[in-house]
């Protein structure tokens, strides 16, 4: 199974990932309306991407009372037609990876196996690749850690 991996040490904070995502999903360039968000502050000296981790036990699926969220080929997808825009999903996401702008709710669906964010990343800070055992373990450990503290 291929997943999106992010290497913060390679990220330069350019936001092209978010530009491409919003352009692909909404036909506009808007880094605030994207499934991937770059949080950055040049004075505090960081840049970090926030994007869906495709949790195995996904709070968004559990919490959605309209059945908008569902699992398809190990990717958590969202059906906007079912959604009543209550934004509970965003509230419970342990990674803050569900973006809400006005009425819009945006969540990464890996672009049906062709994630645009990866395509426009020039440093391979974002990669889409088969998960290795170590990566899987790391991802699950991280997810557990966050869930246990939240």
């Amino acid at each position: 199974m291929k997943y999106l991996f992010y290497h913060p040490e390679k990220c330069t904070g350019c936001k092209q990932c978010a530009m491409a995502c919003s352009l692909n999903k909404f036909g506009e360039c808007n880094p605030k309306k994207s499934a991937i968000s770059i949080v950055r502050d040049e004075f505090e000296r960081y840049e970090y991407a926030i994007v869906c981790m495709q949790c195995e036990e996904a709070p968004c699926i559990e919490v959605c009372h309209q059945g908008s969220y569902y699992l398809e080929d190990n990717v958590i997808k969202r059906d906007d037609d079912q959604c009543i825009h209550c934004r509970l999903c965003a509230a419970v996401c342990p990674h803050s990876a569900i973006t809400t702008v006005g009425k819009e709710i945006v969540k990464c669906d890996l672009c049906d196996g062709d994630p645009k964010c990866v395509k426009y990343c020039s440093t391979e800070a974002l990669v889409y690749e088969e998960e290795t055992k170590e990566q899987a373990a790391k991802r699950q450990e991280l997810a557990k850690k966050i869930l246990s503290t939240s």
């Binding site: 350019c14 092209q16 020039s122």
Partner: peptide
């Protein structure tokens, strides 16, 4: 090395 907005060059 870091970037301005939308830059591949950094």
């Amino acid at each position: 090395m870091i970037s301005c907005s939308s830059c591949f060059m950094h």
